[in-house]
Amino acid sequence: MTQQIKDTVKAFIIDNFLFGDTSYALADDVSLIESGVIDSTGVLELVTYIEDQFGLEMADSDIVPANLDSLVRIAAFIEAKQAAAQPVKQAAGAA
């Protein structure tokens, strides 16, 4: 699951921030800020994308480099967020 999320997000980043440049070695753990891949407006685009693509709502406290500054972190964050949302959905469905 994590790999699938990672691949999806990676495709978005390559297309949107690297303009399809596949020669750029976007390693899973590279810092997106330090490597110049995204800037302050890029973060806002990334958040919008994650919310739309994965059906998540991100709180202000979620929008921190610890959650979003590399592919590994983004995938882990999305997976955790989805897992946290799951029981609520299931509970709502049971009722």
Partner: peptide, 21 residues
Amino acid sequence: YLPGLQKQSASYLAAFFGAGK
């Protein structure tokens, strides 16, 4: 005058400006 920065968390602001880097 940069709206993109106004919406950022403290940790992102620090990262953008390379604080500690």
